[in-house]
């Protein structure tokens, strides 16, 4: 029973700093679904920005810290595909902690996959009468396989859609390029500024062309980038993390 499990909330550092409402929504949503959730106060950045920039070897400290902070929980849930993927794929192996790391990798989940695969949420009660466009973050999409990849010959699935489809009145908008990268890419957003912005603009256009009202996704980093461009260009799209939609809809 999920009620007896200790669930830790892993909140990416930038969400903590810039998007507390996303973290609150994640917490409240899990609580509404009957989970015992706590937020280990000592958590820090998982080390992803350094690792993706070529300094994985310098993230031994943060990785060790992460294992110590989260190791004893039954589940670790984060409203971010990207940070979860980092922990699973790129956190360096720590000598003497191999067992803990392996077990950690099996109990850490991105929010939507936790809802569909662990909680097996099938019958959300709530309403959200809006046209919603889903931005599949690449790390969630192709890294964690939260949805079928458009490149592969496999049956369609999307853990996000599986959840959003349960919400009354919510219209899932089909896009032309269903899972193209938004161009955020961590430091890429700055080192390749021109490309990054162009990719973001193209993604936004896809949503706008199809009449999306609210753009959502599982990673605030992509959304921060897209929202930053949309605001600068006075585009009228609204942006919400999927946790915010679900939490708002079922309240």
């Amino acid at each position: 029973m999920i009620q007896n499990k200790n669930i830790a909330l892993f909140i990416p550092c930038y969400v903590d700093q810039f998007y507390p409402n996303v973290a609150i929504a994640t917490l409240e949503l899990l609580e509404k679904l009957g989970c015992q959730v706590s937020y280990p106060i000592g958590q820090t950045c998982c080390g992803q920005p350094m690792a993706n920039t070529g300094y994985e070897r310098d993230t031994v400290g943060t990785t060790k810290h992460f294992v110590e902070i989260f190791g004893d929980y039954d589940y670790i849930v984060a409203p971010s595909g990207s940070c979860v993927l980092h922990i699973k794929d790129h956190a360096p192996a720590i000598a003497g902690m191999e067992k803990e790391q392996e077990s950690l990798h099996n109990k850490i989940f991105e929010l939507t996959e936790f809802l569909t695969d662990v909680l097996k949420v099938e019958n959300l009660k709530g309403s959200f009468p809006h046209k919603v466009g889903y931005h599949a973050s690449c790390h969630g999409q192709r890294g964690l396989r939260l949805g079928s990849s458009s490149e592969r010959n496999e049956p369609f699935f999307s853990k996000a859609k599986q959840l959003l489809d349960q919400i009354e009145g919510l219209e899932w908008v089909e896009l032309t390029r269903t899972d193209e990268c938004c161009g955020f890419g961590g430091t890429f957003a700055v080192t390749e500024e021109a490309l990054s912005v162009q990719m973001g603009k193209d993604r936004l256009q896809d949503h706008l062309t199809h009449g999306v009202e609210i753009l959502t996704g599982g990673d605030m980093s992509c959304i921060m980038h897209l929202e930053g461009i949309a605001k600068r260009n006075q585009q009228t799209l609204k942006f919400m993390h999927i946790a915010e939609i679900l939490n708002q809809a079922i309240s």
Partner: peptide, 9 residues
């Protein structure tokens, strides 16, 4: 190698 978002496509 940095001219990529590591999107995995």
């Amino acid at each position: 190698p940095f001219a990529s978002t590591l999107c995995g496509s």
